[in-house]
Computed example of a mutant assay.
Amino acid sequence: MNGSALPRLALTAGEPAGVGPELLVRLAATSLAANFVAITDRSLLERAAARCGTTITLIDDDGADTATRAAGSLRVRHIPLAAPEVPGTPDPSNAQHVLATLSEAARGCAEGRYAAVVTAPLQKSSINEAGIPFSGHTEFFAAQSHADVVMMLASPELRVALATTHLPLHAVSAAIDAFSLERTLRIVHAELRAKFGFSEPRIAVLGLNPHAGENGHIGHEEIDTIIPVLEKLRGQGMQLLGPLPADTAFVPAQRKRYDAVLAMYHDQALPVLKSEAFDRTVNLTLGLPFIRTSVDHGTALDLAGSGKADPSSLIAAANLALDLVARSRKVIQP
């Protein structure tokens, strides 16, 4: 890719019966300076554009670079559906189609054909109902890349990484051991430096229990696992705060002290982030050998087919991907 070429961003549409295809065509209608390549069924995009009342020009992707992109134009890497979508009603027969789009995106990034991948939401249950074990984008890309990864959600004001992701609450404590917690913190620290440009990242680590365990009176995970790991990594030069009680970690006075938060489980911190910046929050996967960003919401089956789904989070995801690509290009330039 030459220096004047627009970054080639792979876009996956996620669940065909959800809002993802409509979000893709609305993203393509913007003037963002990217060479968008939608990895999905061409006719799915045509139907989505018609539902949105959006004029779109679909171009078969030939892998070529381009220095410009007209608003409303979208390159397509065609991967056919098994059955036409019915908005709002996922069809498990299309599960293999969804996984094939993700595989192509990961493979294309590994081969240098795409600078990053931006994903629309998918329906995990539909894939599972097809008899395929699947727990989410993050885990899928980790397996494809043989990488240890961390899920992070980021808005312009706040970055939250997760020690555990899609687990039932009763399984969280057992999943947080010293080895996994140390590995997670090392990934977050390294990626805050590499992707976000923090030379000495400051990471706030939340406790698992109310009041961060209150010296063992409300649980022992902090004393037994979290504190020893933090002390070890502090001894190696990491700037780590905590473990902090989750109920006060996000007040303005605390936020000034850190660049990112590590939460112990999915719903411990994400409600704070989404309540204040839902349309500006981006899901990204740390630790992959390529850049992957995504929306911070689900398939919105109740809105699918209406043409009214808000593309703000997908646009934010594309913008962040472009920012990260630009930063990576500056790093590798002589």
Rank of each mutant, 00 (worst) to 15 (best):
P7C: 02
P7I: 01
L9W: 12
L11T: 01
G14R: 11
P16C: 09
P16I: 04
G20E: 08
P21Y: 10
E22Q: 13
L24K: 07
V25M: 08
V25R: 07
R26C: 03
R26Y: 04
A28G: 07
T30D: 01
L32Y: 07
L32E: 05
A33P: 04
N35F: 00
N35T: 00
I39Y: 08
I39H: 11
D41L: 10
R42G: 02
L44H: 13
E46N: 11
E46H: 13
R51H: 12
C52M: 05
C52G: 08
T54H: 07
T57C: 01
T57K: 09
I59A: 04
G63W: 11
D65A: 15
T66R: 15
T66Q: 14
A67P: 00
A70I: 00
V76P: 01
R77G: 04
P87S: 06
P87Q: 09
T89K: 15
P90L: 08
P90Q: 11
S93T: 15
S93C: 13
A95C: 06
H97C: 03
L99A: 11
A100K: 15
A100W: 09
E104D: 00
A106Y: 11
C109T: 10
C109Q: 12
A110D: 05
E111M: 12
E111N: 13
R113I: 01
Y114S: 00
Y114L: 04
A115K: 08
V118Q: 12
T119R: 07
P121Q: 07
P121M: 04
S125D: 13
